[in-house]
Computed example of a mutant assay.
Amino acid sequence: MDLPDELLHLRGRRGGEAAMAAVIGDDDLLREIPLRLGFPAFLVHAALVSKRWLRVAADTVFLRRFRDRHPPRILGFYVNHCSTLRTVFVSVSEARELRYAVNRAGFHHCNQSVRIADSRNGRLLLRSLPFGCGGYTMFSPLCPARGVLPIRLPPELLHIGRLSPLDYSSQCLYLLFRDNNDGIVLVSVRLSGRKLSARVYVGQSDAWGEAILAEGELPVPLKFVRSMMIVNDKLYIVLDNCYICGLDFVAPRLRLFVVKVPDKVGADFKLSHGDDSGLFLIHRDRFHLSVWNHQMDDNGEDRWELVDRFVVRAAQDRHERFRVCAVSEDGGFVFLCLWTSRTIISVDLRSRKETTYEIKVQGIYFTTIFPLMTIWPPTFPTLNDEDDHDE
C-alpha cells in the first residue's frame, strides 16, 4: 500500500523502526494505514492487531472517511426466474481480494428450491417452494457457517400463506429487512377500493413485536401492490396507477401518507435512497435513465426534482426497450433487462459505466434481481473494558 508523505519521510531519515514507532504513537498517522485497506473485511482483520487498532477502525468518523473513499462494491446479483422457478447467482466482482467471498455467494449451502424475497447487507430472505406450503428462512451467503435460520410468522398471518415480490392480489404479505441492522419487518397489506390497511410487525426471526395497524384513504381506487421498500424506518408501498404510500412505523403517531410520482414517469420505475438524501426514483424514458429525488418542502408539500438523465448506450445501440429491474441498496447501481435480447445490464450511476451480461432471462416482466453487496458497516469484535490495554 502507499504510505503517507509523513511516513515516507520518517522511513528515509531514521529507518523503518523509527517510522513504525512514530505511527504507533500518533493516532492521526495510524488512521492512514487502515484507510488504505480497500475492503471492509480487512478493517476487521486490522482491528484484531490490538485494542488501539480496534478503536481506530471502529471510530464512526473514520468509518465515514473509509466509506467515502471505498464505496460499497457489488459482488454479484441473484436472478429469480419466475417462469422456470429458478434462482441463479451471477458473479460481478473481479477483485482478487473478493474472489473467495464471491465463490461462497451461491446456494451451495442451502436448499435449491427457494426464491429470494429480499436482499440487504449480505443477507437473503428466502421463501421455500412451492409457495403454498413452504416456509421462510434467512441466509448469509458470505457466512455460510451460520446456516439457514428459520423464520416463524405470527399465527394470525399463517392463513395468507404466500410471499412474493410481485403479488397482484388485494391482500399480500411481504417480508423485508429493516435497513442495515438485524431486524426484520413483516407487512400485511389489504386493498379495498380506495381504502388501504397495513399491519406491520417489527422483530427478529423468532420474536415479533406488537402489530402496528395503519389505515388510510387513497386518492383513487387501486387494485394491487407492486413492491415495497424500507428507508430509515419508513415503509414505502408502490401501488398501481403511479402512487406511493408511505408509513413511518416508529413515529409516535402513525399516519399513512400518499405521494404521486412525477407526471412524466410511467409505471416502470424503482425506488432507491442515498445517505440522508431523501427518496430517489429511477425510471426508463425511451433509451434514457432518469433519476428523480423526492423531498418535502417547509410546508410539508411533495417536491420532485430531476437530478440526472442520460442515455443507456447498450439499449440505444441495439435499439431495444428495457425494463428497470433493481437498484442496489446503496443506490449506486441499477440493473436493467433488455426486452428483445433478454440480456441484463448493470449501470454505475456515479460513472455511468455499463456492463452487459449475456445471461438470458425468462419472462422479463416477472424476473426479479437482487444485488449482493459488500457488508457495511463491518462487525468488529467486542472490546473488553475490564482488560483495557493496547495489545
Results as ranks from 00 to 15, higher is better:
Arg31Phe: 05
Pro72Ala: 10
Gly76Cys: 08
Phe39Thr: 03
Ala47Arg: 01
Phe39Lys: 10
Leu63Ala: 05
Val61Arg: 11
His70Asp: 02
Gly76Phe: 07
Val44Pro: 02
Ala57Gly: 06
Leu54Thr: 09
Arg55Asn: 11
Asn80Gln: 07
Cys82Pro: 00
Ser50Ala: 11
Ala41Met: 13
Val23Glu: 09
Ala19Glu: 15
Pro34Lys: 05
Phe42Thr: 03
Leu43Phe: 08
His70Trp: 15
Asp27Met: 11
Ser50Asp: 07
Ile24Tyr: 12
Phe77Ser: 04
Phe42Asn: 10
Asp26Pro: 04
Arg64Ile: 01
Leu43Ser: 09
Asp59Gly: 06
Ala47Met: 04
Cys82Met: 02
Ile33Gln: 07
Ala19His: 01
Leu30Trp: 06
Ala21Gly: 14
Leu35Met: 15
Val61Trp: 04
Arg36Gln: 14
Leu63Thr: 07
Glu32Phe: 01
Asp59Trp: 03
His45Tyr: 02
Arg65Gly: 01
Ile33Tyr: 05
Ala19Ile: 05
Leu54Ala: 10
Arg65Ile: 00
Leu30Phe: 09
His45Asn: 05
Pro71Ser: 13
Ala57Gln: 08
Met20His: 14
Val44Trp: 05
Val49Pro: 06
Arg31Ile: 05
His45Ile: 03
Pro72Asp: 02
Gly38Glu: 07
Phe77Met: 08
Arg69Val: 00
His81Lys: 05
Gly25Asp: 13
Arg64Ser: 14
Leu54Met: 12
Glu32Cys: 15
Val23Ala: 14
Asp27Ala: 15
Arg67Gln: 11
Asp68Trp: 03
Asp28Ser: 12
Cys82Phe: 12
Val61Asp: 14
Leu29Val: 09
Val56Gly: 04
Ala47Asn: 02
Leu63Met: 14
Leu37Glu: 04
Ile33Asp: 04
Arg36Lys: 10
Asp59Asn: 12
Phe62Pro: 01
Leu48Met: 15
His70Thr: 03
Arg52Leu: 12
Val49Ala: 13
Asn80Thr: 02
Cys82Tyr: 11
Met20Gln: 14
Ala22Lys: 04
His81Phe: 13
Leu37Ser: 07
Val61Ala: 14
Lys51Asn: 14
Arg67Glu: 07
Val61Thr: 10
Asp28Leu: 13
Ile24His: 10
His70Lys: 06
Pro71Met: 08
Ser50Met: 04
Met20Lys: 14
Asp27Pro: 11
Pro40Met: 07
Tyr78Thr: 01
Arg55Tyr: 04
Trp53Cys: 02
Asp26Met: 06
Ala21Phe: 03
Asp28Lys: 10
Asp26Asn: 15
Phe77Pro: 06
Arg55Lys: 12
Ser50Pro: 05
Asp59Val: 02
Arg73Phe: 00
Leu30Met: 15
Val79Glu: 00
His81Asp: 15
Ala58Cys: 11
Phe39Tyr: 15
His45Ala: 10
Arg73Glu: 14
Arg31Tyr: 07
Gly38Ile: 01
His70Gly: 07
Arg55Trp: 03
Ala41Thr: 08
Val44Thr: 11
Leu43Tyr: 08
Phe62Lys: 04
His45Phe: 03
Arg52Ile: 04
